[in-house]
Design a protein around this nucleic acid. Sequence first.
RNA 1: CGGGGUGUAGCGCAGCCUGGUAGCGCGCCUCGUUCGGGACGAGGAGGUCGAAGGUUCGAAUCCUUUCACCCCGACCA
Length: 586
Amino acid sequence: MRFSKLLIPTLKEAPKDAVLPSHIYLVRGGFIFQVASGIYDFLPLGKRVLDKVRAIVKEELDAAGCQEVQLGFVTPAELWKKSGRYEKYGAELLRFEDRKGNEFVLGPTHEEMMVELAGQFVNSYKQLPLNLYQINLKFRDEARPRFGLMRGREFIMKDGYSFHADREDMVREFELMETTYRKIFTRMGLDFRVVEADSGAIGGEGSKEFMVLADSGEDTIVVCDGCDYAANIEAARRSESEDVPEAPEADLTKFHTPGVTSIEELAHFFHVDPYYLLKCVAKKALYDEGRSEIVLFFLRGSDELQETKAANSVGANELEDATEEELEAAGLVPGYMGPVSIMRNEPEEGKAPFSALVADLGVPMIFDNSLKGAKQMICGANEPDYHIVGADLDILNEEKFADLVQVKEGDICAKCGGRLSYTKGIEVGHIFQLGTRYSEPLGASFLDRDGKSKPFVMGTYGIGVSRLLAAVIEQHHDDKGSIWPASVAPFEAVVVVGNVKDEAQLSAGEKIYEALKAKGVDVLLDDRPERFGFKMKDFELIGFPYAVVVGKRLSEGKVEIVARAGLNRTEADTEEAAERVAKLLG
RNA sequence: CGGGGUGUAGCGCAGCCUGGUAGCGCGCCUCGUUCGGGACGAGGAGGUCGAAGGUUCGAAUCCUUUCACCCCGACCA
């Protein structure tokens, strides 16, 4: 291709609303153009990169035995009503009617459609397993699209769904997909981590995310410095620390603590490490059909609540902060809520004056695992200005315990004992063990060996294809522009003719260009009547892996080969330039 | 959805406070000079000032409403 004929509208100035390098360089480099919030046109260069990313995804998936299909982007609302997600999916689901008044949605994901498809044509265990995927548009009416291709409303996703006769086979496929995804992202030159993830409302037992490490990532991930453990903060686990602070010593009793409501104030008031304070986080849990209830989550004062874990522990769709009014309406005392009430004992020799009971607050109480058998805790007394000290929580045996804590930096790795720390990641892939979550309600089943009808056991696997363009640049750029890995570069090399009016330069450039093409290199000829510096700036901005510069030393039979990464330049004889570049590209 | 900000030429911006013929830089078109790091000169094209309503002799400018876009947060199978 010739640069002079291609629509590559590079810009000198950054668009004012772009903040991330990937967004800035995709726009400045003439890859994409914003049409509306979260909706972008792909210009020729952007389309080329997109196609290369798609090709890699397709190649690896096909090699793993998956089959590509393409489902309708516009999907009947009826299917969504059948799965129960029509209402549940919320405002992100774009709904509309056709001229006859039939209801449709723009597909934000395609579980329903794909299950329907499999249910239609797969009747026997002999047809299993089956892994179908598509690389297709998705539309989610995001509350806040941002960062260019990073979080669009319209975007391209590869979504795959596998169907199995039993759980074992599904887990086998899940692992196959993990290795396949690793290959895909490695080929794109990405530095990524596979992290344990929250399975969330989609359900299932296993879920892993593929995170491209980048400061601009929207997800916080927890990594271990001692082993390969990595998890999304929403799912990260830790080991209980062994060096616990010294425990206070107090007999069980009620204590006057006027106006002391925060953990910080309490720690100061009692001169006690927050580890021995019982933190109560009150939330309003929201369920299907608008149902909601107040739930109290208890954890150590030294810990923070992880909301996703908390929501999962009660099966809620989401949690909201409970207001003081709502707490009072539920008969609770904000600032002084505790799971324990105390009772005065009959005076008796050798017996403590009080004993503890589980308080009956009339709302669900969930306890973090670290509170199992906790001793000498200080907690709210469920009346204004009083706390209970010296509470031993072994009376809570019958209560519900769950993992509620948000792992902190410096916590101990549950796998190897190393130290955990935070890093940021961009989610480019997510694989789930789905089970029968969709096949059951949608009535998608097959006849098993024993002649009985069973719902498919499913897995689902996603890759954010258009988001990958942004992720690659986030990891591969400098202050001049993008630096594309050859595997996804819009062109693998550009031949820059220093001065097209110099016929010798132009014809030498064309010769090298033809030679590169003959060697199978995806090459662009920059034959624009621009000055040298202008063209070099564009090369750096767009970020082709290599440039062959035909210029002033042509008379001595020399051209330059410039590597975009590092901008190192080497001289080459005109005749051997193509060969050298082809070799560099492998 | 809460908080903040911005809408003036393809892009980046000034003008608005204090109402009076819509400007600058880049880009674009023509000609000439230049030609290894985003050249220079001359000439030119291009704008319902986001939209609607109001105040006024007169509105980019003041008032009201509305829409769009961006940032922080909430949210994000």
